[in-house]
Design a protein around this nucleic acid. Structure first.
Lengths: 209, 209
DNA sequence: GCCGGGTGAACGATCGATCGATAGGTTCCG
DNA sequence: CGGAACCTATCGATCGATCGTTCACCCGGC
């Protein structure tokens, strides 16, 4: 073959991409670095040239994905104004859009959390708690100002987050060129529509008047 | 030691219990059968005396847990009458009670699904589809009879199921003898109260009038 | 004396990780 | 301009550890 599967110099991206695929399909312990290297079209040694090991491959994936989620949340809240319903909707939009645009990584981050190096897990646990606080503050503010009438804000918050997160488990992106849409009515639902639907659900969960 | 860690004859239960713990803590591929046998206080060979291998250990765990979920659903729906809200509440109750009473197994079933033997996975996928239909029929019936006003029944259904399932991720059982309740306000919340809260949330999600 | 319950040693395979070697590119000095 | 020196990206071979599994054997009670 005249052209190699992976152009020289682009090894790092190829390995990262292969690791993402393998971790998503078989989980962290179910993936072998040999398989990851083979998927990338490289040797095992090339993997170690670009990364320090299997653990760091997982950490980098989760860390980058988690950081992007926070960027999306901050951006959404910064332009959301002061109204509790608008702020809740902004957080729902950020979460839904993150879960569909980074469907694979976000699922890995959620399910392979326990396989992180203890130090990394502890550090990222702080971020997770901060995200939880973002939701809690908005719901508490809405309740305090009489905009939300739900009796149990913590349960409402957890229900909303769980519903948004679950989207990554079933959503299938739009397929313009694929007429066969199978038996799943929501296949290919446009993301803005999805955001609208889950915003409406969230507002009902907090009992917004 | 005069008394062995595991009484003679109770090896099977000890191994099943150890497998449940290990799979929950480290996942299927992260667990080794040597560790499972050691947890059970038995030798590796005793494990193979009672089970045919690692795979069957996982299958038995998930299969038993899934079957119990269906028993709970059938029982709840049989005594629920005809009212859509009552039937939805019954399914929420069955799901919440299952998720807290079988917290560990239900989490394993949800996260280690992909590591099942293909034949077993296919068979159990049928059960999962049946459960999904249980929810969908109730919501569709409520919408058709004007009891539920939500515009997107499938999204409402998925949101409710996701919220109920997520309980297993955060719930901590009541601890009567433990005065220190930490910083988690919902720690030790009684199960009937939890059911009431999530039933109310579910009814708001389907926009019950 | 058989049989249910259990043990320890060993198998081949695969794991994550490390090593030295090398093909191609760039830099620098005479 | 020419090549020695050096760097980057990659390779094949191999390490010791651990994996799931098998097998031959043993002990105590009916």
């Amino acid at each position: 073959m005249s052209s190699p599967a992976v152009p020289r110099g682009s090894g790092r991206d190829a390995i990262t991409r292969a690791a993402r695929e393998s971790f998503a399909e078989r989980g962290y312990h179910g993936s072998s670095i040999r398989d990851i290297a083979a998927r990338a079209g490289l040797s095992l040694s090339a993997l170690y040239h670009w990364h320090s090991g299997k653990q760091e491959l997982l950490t980098a994936l989760i860390e980058e994905s988690t950081a992007e989620y926070f960027r999306r949340c901050d951006e959404a809240l910064r332009t959301a104004g002061d109204d509790p319903a608008a702020r809740l909707g902004a957080l729902v939009r950020a979460t839904v859009e993150y879960r569909v645009s980074r469907q694979v990584e976000s699922t890995i981050a959620a399910s392979e959390w326990r396989n992180l190096d203890p130090a990394d897990r502890e550090r990222l646990d702080g971020l997770r708690a901060a995200a939880s606080r973002l939701w809690a503050d908005i719901v508490a503010d809405g309740v305090a100002r009489g905009a939300f009438a739900c009796e149990h804000p913590d349960d409402a918050r957890r229900a909303i987050v769980a519903a948004c997160n679950a989207i990554a488990h079933w959503y299938e992106p739009e397929q313009g060129y694929e007429p066969d849409q199978g038996d799943e009515p929501d296949r290919g639902l446009a993301v803005p529509d999805l955001v609208d639907r889950y915003t409406a659900i969230a507002l009902r969960v907090v009992d917004c008047r």
